[in-house]
Nucleic acid binder design. Structure first.
Lengths: 207, 207, 207, 207
DNA sequence: GATGAATGAGGATTCATTCAT
DNA sequence: TATGAATGAATCCTCATTCAT
């Protein structure tokens, strides 16, 4: 999981025609987010989802073809939400490093509120590698683009590579795991500031 | 997964009394590493493991009580191997930043050779959260200790926090995922150098 | 197994909502009575039950959580049937000793018709001790109550103890085992008469 | 289980030649009595027996061909012990009814001391019906013979049938279950006396 | 005789998916 | 659309028995 922007749709292939159908679909997706988040993909069951959604087992298959499909739909849905969350931070025009700081901070806040999302996207690595890779590659590209833009503006150094973007994304993801999902013992602001420090001037003693 | 040091033993609860038993146990662990690495914990089957090991199904249960147990034994075993790999890099007394560079480089080489290990340890997050957390917390502590030692020596700045260690670990893990497991399109030396650059002076344009 | 009265319900936890479901549940219980009766609890298999019932293996688990559960449901069901069988004998108001004779006779007839029930309830001693004890304790109480009522009416002697009830129940059960389940070489009427003789005036030479 | 007399041997087919072998065989039988008594035939395991006996798994098969065989050997062994226990009571020449009282009393004492034996013999009904039937048929014959002898002596009434013997045996077994195995809340002397009362003059109010 | 590793048939249970109403 | 019963492939695990040392 990590930081990014730009929406994403197509929750499911079958779009409900009636209002009632739309409600059922939403109930199923919400229930699935909870079920998958609490039990993980393999432990989760369709029965568990429909029980939480308050629908009959059979109704599930009116909206999704399989367990995999709803999982994918969910990852896609949540992946969008994560980007959405970072959006605000990126909307305004800030200095390059400030943008990164804000993005991480927004991400940490979001992760605190949606711990289950974190788990679901992470588990996609094993359940649906394609969308997992897509999620991170998209995110890395987005970060890389920002770095290049920052260099363009003269705020960041030249020669920033895709690897730099991956390094930043890795930092963000692990800080989210440690300081948002596992424990909230440190304020997002402080964590984001410490990470930003690294980006500003590394960790070497300043000469 | 990531960088660290210090051994670790106790592969399984039942220690074989005979040489033949010892061989069988080793065959099972090796087979399990492949099976879990290729298919993931849930898709993997005991049958698959014993088939690869060339033993009877029942023999599995002579050495392990359950699928979970062998998985845990494996994580513990591999977790040790990862640290072992980084060890050489840390043995000699290098400058602090140089040490980090070498550790990452060793780690990337190791991950290329043992892609399945990467996957197994990552999946532990869902199968055996306890050892997963333990693995990363131990690793982060080890990194943090190195940072403090570096500051002590006057090579790194003061006030380096546990969060800095997590940030570095995250960088390393994601770079391993991208440049060792997913693709080998960039040399470990170069990736390690790019990451080290960040630690040396951040990504801001030097003023 | 033995003699008693009073109904009993709740065959299974999952009550079918449809008629079809009700039919399947009944087929499973009937098949289980045969399977357990013929092969005993441990030799019996769920597959054997569903094969006899003509349903798919999985359907079993729509109605029962486990092999134990259906066994318990069955014991409870059959336990009720045994009492039901004795009921007719006890309905009318007969002399105390005559009541005991009729109860035993009815029980012997019933046991001849339902030999498998005999075996199932007996095996409950090992499979489900709780319901086994409950069955016999209930039965003994019922007998004891009849003895006290008989004494009250002046037909039976004073001071009849719970132990007397257990003695009578033991007689009945073993006579059922020998003359209903193992062999039908003697008419229930005659067996009941011989046993009743003991209750009437013991086995000592009258003098 | 119940009351009787006359020895019985042949514990196992393979008679050990050495002293060491004899000890191992005895250890296995004792361990089996505990294992079967505590866990029942099906739950009991050969491993459990050898663990308790302190021998290697393989050693079991030096003395017994199968789990069934040791169970049968045990039932036979214990069946003999039960008769042995009643023997003392029957040795001296008492009045017929007094003999029955003493036999039951001895049996109750024995059952209190050897609850596990009770369970093992009972379970034989399902595991080894042949020896189970043999045990009870032998016991019933023995009782019947005593009844006929008592009639011969003029102490018991004429026409005492095999069914009377079964009734008495049933009484004894159930009183043993209730007042020796399940609870010891009533003294064996009293229980035996109450049962004997029935044999002396039934339960009807004396005219 | 003793030891303990190896074997594999057997069975309970789960649950995604299909289908009849 | 909604419902819930029916289906059966898939898999873990047990343990009596055999075998090599």
């Amino acid at each position: 999981m990590s930081t990014g922007s730009a929406p994403h749709h197509r929750l499911s292939d079958k779009v409900p025609r009636t209002e009632r159908g739309r409600r059922t679909l939403r109930k199923l997706l919400d229930a699935a987010a909870i079920e998958f988040g609490e039990r993980g993909f393999h432990e989760a069951s369709i029965t568990g989802i429909t029980r939480r959604a308050g629908t009959a087992l059979g109704s599930f298959y009116t909206y999704f073809h399989s367990k995999d499909e709803i999982f994918r739909a969910l990852v896609s849905d949540l992946s969008g939400k994560v980007r959405e969350a970072a959006k605000s931070a990126l909307a305004e025009d800030h200095a390059a490093l400030e943008t990164e700081r804000m993005a991480l901070e927004a991400f940490l806040h979001f992760a605190r509120e949606h711990k289950e999302i974190y788990r679901i996207i992470d588990e996609a690595e094993f359940v649906d590698p394609t969308s997992f890779r897509a999620h991170y590659e998209t995110t890395a590209s987005r970060i890389h683009a920002r770095l290049l833009a920052g260099a363009e503006k003269g705020e960041l150094r030249e020669g920033l590579d895709e690897a730099h973007a991956w390094a930043i994304m890795g930092m963000n993801v692990f800080l989210g795991l440690r300081y948002a999902v596992w424990s909230e013992d440190t304020a997002p602001e402080r964590v984001a500031e410490l990470a930003n420090e690294i980006l500003r001037h590394g960790i070497a003693r300043e000469g």
